[in-house]
Design a protein around this nucleic acid. Sequence first.
DNA 1: AACGATGTTTCACACAATAAAACATTGAGA
DNA 2: TCTCAATGTTTTATTGTGTGAAACATCGTT
Lengths: 266, 266
Amino acid sequence: MSEPKDYKIAAVDRALALLEALADRPDQGVTSLAKSLGMTKSLVFRLLHTLEERGFVSRDPERAEFALGYRIGVLGERLGKDGALLYAARPVMDALRDQTSENVNLVVREGLKTYVLATRAGRHSIRLFAQAGRNGPLHAGGGSLLLLAYADPSVIDAALSQPLEAFTPYTITDRAKLRQALERIRANGYNIVLNDLDEGAFSVAAPITGADGTIIASISVAGAVARFDEERRESHLRAALDAAAEISERLSIHGPGENGLVKSRA
Amino acid sequence: MSEPKDYKIAAVDRALALLEALADRPDQGVTSLAKSLGMTKSLVFRLLHTLEERGFVSRDPERAEFALGYRIGVLGERLGKDGALLYAARPVMDALRDQTSENVNLVVREGLKTYVLATRAGRHSIRLFAQAGRNGPLHAGGGSLLLLAYADPSVIDAALSQPLEAFTPYTITDRAKLRQALERIRANGYNIVLNDLDEGAFSVAAPITGADGTIIASISVAGAVARFDEERRESHLRAALDAAAEISERLSIHGPGENGLVKSRA
DNA sequence: AACGATGTTTCACACAATAAAACATTGAGA
DNA sequence: TCTCAATGTTTTATTGTGTGAAACATCGTT
């Protein structure tokens, strides 16, 4: 689209493409990898050799097939599960904030609480509950209810058997109504709430799917109800769903967008 | 100490060294990384750019510091915890088998059972209990007892409150004696047993430490007691301990051996 | 025994990775 | 406010190095 300048260094990029290919389908041989990536055998061989010396790929004892190496596991463990999610979400959160001009929150569940992984402050200064590192309730707030809706039934039961604090007059504390709300969230695939956690605030939340297909987090747009008309409701919802989809795609094993195989001719 | 042939492709190797450096110490800037790796700023910059485009490194919103990216987490998760251990151990197991000519087993704990991750068959054909993918008891066998010894006290209590099957006349089924044995294992830092799981077999087991410093697995040398004299007892023990240490080092965040930084200081 | 497929090695050339240095930007301190 | 120092970014020339093609070796199969 724009930049004629390409700072990518090709050899490294190809090596990373190789790793992605191995993650996507392990136990491939040199020829198979070369074919599917459009590289020559000798190149793949040397890339694999380099990666193997550092433990980033591992070869079968039978000396035939390759897979991701232990070092990837070690580094990945170092990052932690939240780290991957957080870093995958970061640029998307920035974009979502710029799009909506509202607050953006990334929230996960932690037992019977929620945990705010990161936030982006919108243009308008409004103090909301969400703040990075903070724990919150599971039964109030756009992202919280969404996470609860997609949690294991046993978690839902446990959460609903606790006392349900009313943070505002609009907080749903009736268990039957709460279960109804959860059902509607699952039917819709998103959640929109008003005033239930922070008085005067709306929240539009969308679900983020992890590599294993389960819902692992929520991203939400939040701001003052005064600015929340029908048009914004639509646009924020779409933006949140798109953002959630993009993060989910990044976290999927197939990776974002094209897998970057640069086609040379013939 | 042999092959002058170097198939490593330098650019890729440097990129991997960069990743290791970031894993070792995150939130570094271009200059700092360049200095500690002995590379030029522009090179580091372009490496980081390439890695970032694929999500293998992530930059702070404040546009200053870098860390491992989400894609590493995704690929690492794909490998699984056992995968990293298994692949790190593979070549070491091969070497250990070649050194000792005996069977080699890699075992982890799974609840109140053990799980055999991988085995290597020694030169002499002897059928032992261990077989990849198999579950075993926690109170008999060289690796099993070792894992139990280093397990959480609650796990030990739970394991000892079960009925303790006597696989051979030599299996320790007396709970007090078992606890004594565990204590001695912890004092020694290894475990040697004879005939307690497989009649006529010895087992010399050493503990493998994960990245977090806890003992996560056992590697053991096993064979027929007929071949187990005092000299072999010593050599096998040393070999097993060395192998365990090497695997542990591979799994540590600092990585195996030198981190490949070519020192050139001014 | 001959084949076909695979992994491995060699080699020469073009181009892409590299280092050096100029430039831009930021923040600190006087 | 101005200056200085440190950092990230960009440019450019040269060389070294990554690259593809093709030869070679090593299997397993028919």
